[in-house]
Simulated assay, not measured.
Amino acid sequence: MCESISPIVEFTTVAKEFRHEYVVEKSRFITTICPCSTEEEAQAFIGRINKEFWDARHNCTAFALGPKQEQQRSSDNGEPSGTAGKPMLEVLKKTGITNVAVVVTRYFGGIKLGAGGLIRAYSHSVAETLRLAPKELHTTRTQLQATIDYALYGAIERYVQDQKLHYESNFGEHVDITILVPPTDVERIQKELQDMSHGAATCTILDSIEVVLPLEQ
Protein backbone atom coordinates (compact mmCIF):
# COMPACT_ATOMS: atom_id res chain seq x y z
CA MET A 1 0.00 0.00 0.00
CA CYS A 2 1.46 3.35 -1.01
CA GLU A 3 1.70 6.08 1.59
CA SER A 4 0.08 9.33 0.50
CA ILE A 5 2.25 12.42 0.43
CA SER A 6 0.85 15.50 2.14
CA PRO A 7 0.65 18.55 -0.11
CA ILE A 8 3.13 21.32 0.56
CA VAL A 9 1.60 24.27 2.40
CA GLU A 10 3.28 27.30 0.86
CA PHE A 11 2.51 30.99 1.05
CA THR A 12 4.09 34.41 0.62
CA THR A 13 3.85 37.22 3.16
CA VAL A 14 5.68 40.43 4.01
CA ALA A 15 8.88 40.04 6.00
CA LYS A 16 8.34 43.01 8.30
CA GLU A 17 6.19 46.09 8.84
CA PHE A 18 6.58 48.52 5.96
CA ARG A 19 5.20 51.95 5.08
CA HIS A 20 4.81 53.90 1.83
CA GLU A 21 3.14 57.24 1.04
CA TYR A 22 1.28 58.21 -2.12
CA VAL A 23 -0.11 61.69 -2.89
CA VAL A 24 -2.91 62.38 -5.37
CA GLU A 25 -4.75 65.71 -5.74
CA LYS A 26 -3.17 66.87 -2.45
CA SER A 27 -4.65 63.92 -0.51
CA ARG A 28 -2.03 61.86 1.32
CA PHE A 29 -2.46 58.09 1.33
CA ILE A 30 -0.11 56.53 3.91
CA THR A 31 -0.08 52.75 3.61
CA THR A 32 1.25 50.63 6.47
CA ILE A 33 1.47 46.87 6.04
CA CYS A 34 2.34 44.29 8.67
CA PRO A 35 2.75 40.49 8.87
CA CYS A 36 0.06 38.92 11.07
CA SER A 37 -0.81 35.27 11.66
CA THR A 38 -4.07 35.69 13.62
CA GLU A 39 -7.06 38.02 13.61
CA GLU A 40 -6.06 39.19 17.09
CA GLU A 41 -2.67 40.29 15.76
CA ALA A 42 -4.30 42.01 12.80
CA GLN A 43 -6.75 43.91 15.02
CA ALA A 44 -3.97 44.91 17.42
CA PHE A 45 -1.96 46.29 14.50
CA ILE A 46 -4.99 48.18 13.16
CA GLY A 47 -5.63 49.63 16.61
CA ARG A 48 -2.02 50.79 16.88
CA ILE A 49 -2.16 52.56 13.50
CA ASN A 50 -5.49 54.17 14.38
CA LYS A 51 -3.88 55.53 17.55
CA GLU A 52 -0.81 56.78 15.65
CA PHE A 53 -2.93 58.55 13.01
CA TRP A 54 -5.78 59.58 15.29
CA ASP A 55 -6.21 62.91 13.46
CA ALA A 56 -6.62 61.39 9.97
CA ARG A 57 -10.00 61.52 8.25
CA HIS A 58 -9.88 57.81 7.38
CA ASN A 59 -7.91 54.72 8.39
CA CYS A 60 -9.20 52.08 5.96
CA THR A 61 -8.25 48.46 6.51
CA ALA A 62 -8.00 45.01 4.99
CA PHE A 63 -6.42 41.76 6.03
CA ALA A 64 -6.02 38.22 4.69
CA LEU A 65 -4.99 35.31 6.87
CA GLY A 66 -4.24 31.63 6.28
CA PRO A 67 -2.17 29.87 3.59
CA LYS A 68 -4.97 30.31 1.07
CA GLN A 69 -6.32 33.59 2.50
CA GLU A 70 -9.14 31.71 4.25
CA GLN A 71 -9.88 34.68 6.53
CA GLN A 72 -10.57 38.02 4.87
CA ARG A 73 -11.97 41.28 6.16
CA SER A 74 -12.01 44.92 5.12
CA SER A 75 -13.40 48.28 6.22
CA ASP A 76 -14.07 51.54 4.38
CA ASN A 77 -13.84 53.47 7.69
CA GLY A 78 -16.16 56.24 6.55
CA GLU A 79 -15.25 56.38 2.89
CA PRO A 80 -18.15 55.77 0.44
CA SER A 81 -19.13 52.10 0.50
CA GLY A 82 -16.91 49.90 -1.65
CA THR A 83 -14.32 52.58 -2.48
CA ALA A 84 -11.56 51.69 0.00
CA GLY A 85 -11.60 48.45 2.00
CA LYS A 86 -12.88 46.21 -0.78
CA PRO A 87 -10.40 47.49 -3.41
CA MET A 88 -7.59 47.07 -0.86
CA LEU A 89 -8.66 43.49 -0.19
CA GLU A 90 -8.94 42.79 -3.91
CA VAL A 91 -5.28 43.74 -4.32
CA LEU A 92 -4.32 41.28 -1.57
CA LYS A 93 -6.39 38.57 -3.25
CA LYS A 94 -4.87 39.29 -6.65
CA THR A 95 -1.27 39.12 -5.37
CA GLY A 96 -1.95 36.05 -3.23
CA ILE A 97 0.07 37.57 -0.39
CA THR A 98 -1.38 36.44 2.93
CA ASN A 99 -0.94 36.58 6.70
CA VAL A 100 -0.89 40.32 6.31
CA ALA A 101 -2.88 43.33 7.47
CA VAL A 102 -2.86 46.72 5.78
CA VAL A 103 -4.07 50.16 6.82
CA VAL A 104 -4.32 53.05 4.37
CA THR A 105 -4.46 56.36 6.22
CA ARG A 106 -5.94 59.24 4.26
CA TYR A 107 -5.42 62.91 4.97
CA PHE A 108 -7.90 64.79 2.79
CA GLY A 109 -6.30 67.43 0.57
CA GLY A 110 -9.43 69.45 -0.18
CA ILE A 111 -10.13 68.04 -3.65
CA LYS A 112 -12.78 65.35 -3.97
CA LEU A 113 -11.63 62.33 -5.97
CA GLY A 114 -14.99 60.73 -6.68
CA ALA A 115 -15.74 57.01 -6.28
CA GLY A 116 -13.53 55.95 -9.20
CA GLY A 117 -10.67 58.11 -8.02
CA LEU A 118 -10.87 56.70 -4.51
CA ILE A 119 -10.89 53.11 -5.76
CA ARG A 120 -7.84 53.80 -7.92
CA ALA A 121 -6.00 55.62 -5.14
CA TYR A 122 -6.57 52.95 -2.47
CA SER A 123 -5.81 50.12 -4.90
CA HIS A 124 -2.63 51.78 -6.14
CA SER A 125 -1.47 52.57 -2.59
CA VAL A 126 -1.71 48.94 -1.49
CA ALA A 127 -0.30 47.50 -4.73
CA GLU A 128 2.72 49.80 -4.66
CA THR A 129 3.40 49.16 -0.98
CA LEU A 130 3.24 45.40 -1.52
CA ARG A 131 5.59 45.73 -4.48
CA LEU A 132 8.17 47.63 -2.45
CA ALA A 133 7.87 45.75 0.85
CA PRO A 134 10.38 42.95 1.60
CA LYS A 135 8.65 39.60 1.20
CA GLU A 136 9.33 36.04 2.28
CA LEU A 137 8.22 32.56 1.28
CA HIS A 138 7.02 30.08 3.91
CA THR A 139 7.44 26.58 2.50
CA THR A 140 8.88 23.09 2.90
CA ARG A 141 12.32 22.13 1.65
CA THR A 142 14.17 18.81 1.61
CA GLN A 143 17.75 18.94 2.86
CA LEU A 144 20.11 17.39 0.33
CA GLN A 145 23.67 17.03 1.57
CA ALA A 146 26.46 16.66 -0.97
CA THR A 147 29.93 15.66 0.23
CA ILE A 148 32.60 16.66 -2.29
CA ASP A 149 36.33 17.25 -2.65
CA TYR A 150 37.61 20.81 -2.50
CA ALA A 151 38.47 20.72 -6.19
CA LEU A 152 34.77 20.42 -7.07
CA TYR A 153 33.53 23.09 -4.68
CA GLY A 154 33.68 26.10 -7.03
CA ALA A 155 31.72 24.42 -9.82
CA ILE A 156 29.13 22.90 -7.45
CA GLU A 157 28.61 26.19 -5.63
CA ARG A 158 28.06 28.05 -8.92
CA TYR A 159 25.55 25.41 -9.98
CA VAL A 160 23.61 25.72 -6.71
CA GLN A 161 23.60 29.52 -7.01
CA ASP A 162 22.43 29.35 -10.63
CA GLN A 163 19.55 27.15 -9.47
CA LYS A 164 18.71 29.89 -6.90
CA LEU A 165 18.83 27.36 -4.06
CA HIS A 166 19.70 28.23 -0.49
CA TYR A 167 22.64 26.30 0.91
CA GLU A 168 25.21 26.08 3.70
CA SER A 169 28.79 24.86 3.37
CA ASN A 170 30.88 23.17 6.06
CA PHE A 171 34.60 22.71 5.50
CA GLY A 172 36.52 19.79 6.98
CA GLU A 173 38.45 16.96 5.37
CA HIS A 174 35.85 17.30 2.61
CA VAL A 175 33.19 19.94 1.91
CA ASP A 176 29.63 19.21 3.02
CA ILE A 177 27.08 21.36 1.18
CA THR A 178 23.57 21.18 2.63
CA ILE A 179 21.12 22.39 -0.02
CA LEU A 180 17.47 23.26 0.55
CA VAL A 181 15.62 21.72 -2.38
CA PRO A 182 11.90 21.74 -3.31
CA PRO A 183 10.74 18.16 -2.66
CA THR A 184 9.70 17.72 -6.29
CA ASP A 185 13.21 18.64 -7.51
CA VAL A 186 15.28 16.39 -5.25
CA GLU A 187 15.76 13.59 -7.79
CA ARG A 188 16.74 16.00 -10.56
CA ILE A 189 19.20 18.00 -8.43
CA GLN A 190 20.77 14.83 -7.05
CA LYS A 191 21.29 13.44 -10.57
CA GLU A 192 22.77 16.70 -11.87
CA LEU A 193 25.20 16.88 -8.94
CA GLN A 194 26.29 13.31 -9.66
CA ASP A 195 26.70 14.08 -13.36
CA MET A 196 28.72 17.24 -12.68
CA SER A 197 31.07 15.43 -10.33
CA HIS A 198 31.29 12.31 -12.54
CA GLY A 199 29.92 10.29 -9.63
CA ALA A 200 32.40 11.68 -7.08
CA ALA A 201 29.78 13.53 -5.01
CA THR A 202 28.17 11.58 -2.19
CA CYS A 203 24.57 12.74 -1.88
CA THR A 204 22.42 12.09 1.19
CA ILE A 205 18.76 13.02 1.50
CA LEU A 206 18.04 14.37 4.98
CA ASP A 207 14.77 15.41 6.63
CA SER A 208 12.32 17.85 5.10
CA ILE A 209 11.88 21.03 7.13
CA GLU A 210 9.65 24.10 7.17
CA VAL A 211 11.64 27.15 6.15
CA VAL A 212 11.23 30.89 5.63
CA LEU A 213 13.09 32.13 2.57
CA PRO A 214 13.62 35.78 1.57
CA LEU A 215 12.26 36.66 -1.85
CA GLU A 216 14.19 38.85 -4.26
CA GLN A 217 12.68 42.27 -4.93
Rank of each mutant, 00 (worst) to 15 (best):
P134H: 01
T142M: 14
L165T: 06
A127R: 15
T139P: 01
A121V: 03
N170H: 15
L132G: 06
A155N: 10
S125W: 00
H166Q: 13
E157M: 04
T129K: 03
T147D: 11
V160R: 02
H124P: 00
Y159N: 02
A155C: 04
L144N: 01
Y159V: 03
L165V: 11
D162K: 14
L118G: 13
G172V: 00
I148H: 01
Y150S: 09
Y122A: 01
Y153A: 06
L132N: 14
G154D: 10
Q163D: 07
K135T: 03
A127C: 09
Y122G: 05
H166W: 09
A121E: 11
F171A: 04
A133T: 06
I148G: 06
A121C: 06
S123V: 05
T129I: 03
E168P: 03
I156Y: 05
D162R: 11
T140G: 09
D149F: 12
K164P: 00
I148S: 06
H124E: 11
E128L: 11
A155H: 08
I156C: 13
Q145G: 00
I156R: 01
S123E: 07
P134Q: 14
K135G: 05
G172M: 11
T142D: 03
E157I: 01
Y167L: 09
R158D: 08
E168D: 13
S123N: 08
E168F: 09
R141I: 02
A151N: 10
S169C: 12
A121P: 07
I156P: 02
T142W: 13
S169W: 03
Y122M: 09
A146N: 03
Q163I: 06
L137P: 00
T147W: 01
L130H: 03
A151H: 07
L152P: 00
G154F: 04
I156E: 03
Q143S: 08
E168H: 14
L130S: 05
P134M: 12
Y167P: 01
L118M: 07
R131S: 15
D162V: 06
E136Q: 14
Y167H: 09
A146R: 05
T140V: 15
H166D: 12
R120V: 02
H166E: 13
L132Y: 04
Q145L: 02
Y150F: 13
S123Y: 02
T140K: 03
L118Q: 08
Y153C: 02
R131H: 15
S169D: 12
